[in-house]
């Protein structure tokens, strides 16, 4: 045999290379932290670290949900709008006197419905994921603004609003929420058969279908998970800022996609992991945090983020090609 049998270190959802790439990202994160620690005294303070973990947490959760969708070779542009919209929903429900537990469940259920609607548009109406999620991106913000009549709804429930500021075992509760999402997400994507189906659908829909994989159900699953993660982040955001506001979380969908891609997810589908987007999100959060500490103009932060996406994805491509 010739080239055919050369072990190509490809994007397997399993051991080996994906872990190695994960480690490079961990290395990058550690280097960033060490450099920032040297450059500024304020970085390694408990306060700042807590702050960093809070900042990264919400993007990280969005990015994990987004990754499920991207693995199926789709995209979910609506997640930022879903965050803003669900922050309005939970604030509205609480203002209407709905008990907290019910408000949370209802908000998450709205996330499920939005995801199901996306999948319906893709599977039944044959719309490209880009289009259907772009449509909900704009309409959800509109519905949210209609509900609030363009203003914000304050949240007076103290139990809800103190949650995001609380610590547990010295770690911010928001970061615990990342772990609460990431562990089941890991089990789902890497250990359960549904994870395999996501990869199979992203790699070759027809082959998956002819092998008995329920392709439509898999697509429903991916978009529902993404929107539900976004609704969950909507709850966390509402808790953190104490209001419901439909214009919040503007552009977070791009942060989520960027985190996912930095974390090694391929926009062509069938390549991705759970730890990748988590690392990606915290690398982005570190850069923003560090730039703030160093008094770098926030406009520069955007430019740096853009350059970083290019550099990291470029090196990822090189690594994949080199492995052939």
């Amino acid at each position: 045999m010739s080239v055919e049998t050369v072990e190509s270190a490809g994007p397997t959802p399993k051991k080996g290379v994906s872990i190695l790439f994960g480690l490079t990202l961990v290395g990058l994160l550690v280097v960033l932290w060490l450099l920032l620690g040297l450059a500024t005294n304020a970085f390694w303070t408990p306060n700042n670290i807590s702050n960093l973990l809070r900042q990264g947490a919400m993007t990280a959760i969005l990015a994990v949900g987004q990754t499920f969708v991207i693995i199926t070779a789709g995209i979910d542009l609506s997640v930022g709008a879903v965050v803003g919209f669900t922050s309005v929903i939970v604030a509205w429900l609480l203002a209407a006197g709905v008990p907290l537990w019910l408000a949370i469940i209802a908000t998450l259920a709205i996330g499920v419905l939005i995801g199901a609607f996306h999948a319906f548009g893709i599977v039944r109406m044959g719309l490209p994921p880009f289009i259907i999620t772009l449509a909900t991106l704009t309409s959800l913000r509109g519905i949210g603004l209609l509900i609030t009549n363009g203003s914000t709804i304050s949240i007076t429930n103290d139990a809800f609003t103190t949650f995001s500021r609380a610590d547990f075992l010295g770690v911010p509760s928001l970061f615990w929420m990342v772990i609460v999402v990431a562990i089941p997400a890991y089990v789902f994507l890497h250990l359960s058969r549904f994870g395999r189906y996501l990869f199979a659908v992203g790699s070759n829909r027809e082959a998956a279908r002819l092998s008995g994989v329920n392709v439509n159900r898999t697509i429903y699953l991916a978009y529902i998970l993404s929107s539900t993660c976004a609704a969950f982040v909507g709850l966390l955001l509402a808790s953190r800022i104490g209001i419901g506001n439909a214009t919040q979380a503007e552009g977070w969908e791009l942060q989520a996609i960027a985190s996912s891609v930095i974390g090694g997810t391929s926009l062509f589908g069938a390549v991705g992991s759970v730890h990748g987007p988590l690392l990606g999100a915290f690398i982005l959060a570190t850069i923003n945090n560090g730039a703030n500490l160093l008094n770098v103009n926030s406009f520069w932060q955007r430019i740096i983020t853009g350059l970083l996406i290019i550099v990291i994805v470029y090196f990822d491509q090189l690594r994949r090609r080199g492995a052939r």
């Binding site: 490809g10 959802p13 790699s203 027809e206």
Partner: peptide, 9 residues
Amino acid sequence: DQGLCLNLP
């Protein structure tokens, strides 16, 4: 087109 998920193991 129908048989294999080529970029999977």
